[in-house]
């Protein structure tokens, strides 16, 4: 049961419960603020006041990060190895036409996230650009999917709804307008 993919109607409420547990522990759910903390730890405070704060106050969230990495390791190795999402057959056909043959067979496209990605300049550029946009966009918007789409909207905050609409506008532009140019 725990080894098969977890259905969305179980996982969704569990995400909300994770948020609730953090609130009970006196903290707010938000993963992207760890990126800012890590910049501070690397000395970014010398370049911008945005990074001047005591990173130790975020130790709890860094522990969440370490935990999330351990969780990813446990889930992929011991909780049903070889899980691959049961995608819509149309999605698979579309991806195969784009040259992504691992659709329906792997958890993520091995073309992008297998070790062969390191020797493919085009893939490396896509990964770098993707990361830059995620990091920059999350801080500009003041949060990511956990802070805005889950915590913020749960608290009925309008800014979080606007940010989430932005997430979808960006995602739809990428998939429908930019992907056809890339693949």
């Amino acid at each position: 049961m725990i080894l098969s993919p977890w259905p969305w109607y179980v996982s969704g409420p569990l995400i909300a419960i994770t948020m609730f547990v953090l609130l009970y522990l006196g903290k707010n759910f938000g993963m992207s603020s760890n990126l800012r903390t890590m910049c501070t730890m690397c000395g970014a405070g010398k370049t911008s006041s945005f990074f001047k704060f005591d990173w130790r106050s975020q130790k709890w969230n860094l522990l969440m990060v370490v935990g999330a990495m351990i969780g990813g390791f446990i889930a992929s190795n011991y909780l049903g190895a070889g899980q691959s999402p049961d995608l819509n057959p149309k999605t698979i056909t579309q991806l195969e036409a784009m040259g992504i043959q691992s659709a329906g067979k792997d958890y993520v496209p091995i073309e992008f996230f297998g070790n062969e990605a390191f020797s493919d300049p085009k893939v490396l550029v896509l990964l770098i650009v993707g990361g830059l946009l995620v990091g920059f966009g999350a801080r500009y918007a003041g949060g990511c999917t956990s802070g805005h789409s889950i915590s913020g909207i749960s608290n009925l905050q309008l800014p979080s709804l606007i940010a989430t609409i932005g997430f979808f506008v960006g995602g739809i532009i990428m998939i429908h307008l930019i992907f056809p140019l890339l693949f």
Partner: peptide, 18 residues
């Protein structure tokens, strides 16, 4: 929120991970 969110969304779809 709208501009930052859109930039984030572009990256979310490209990297496939938040």
């Amino acid at each position: 929120y709208l501009v930052g969110g859109t930039i984030f969304g572009l990256g979310w779809a490209l990297a496939g991970a938040c």
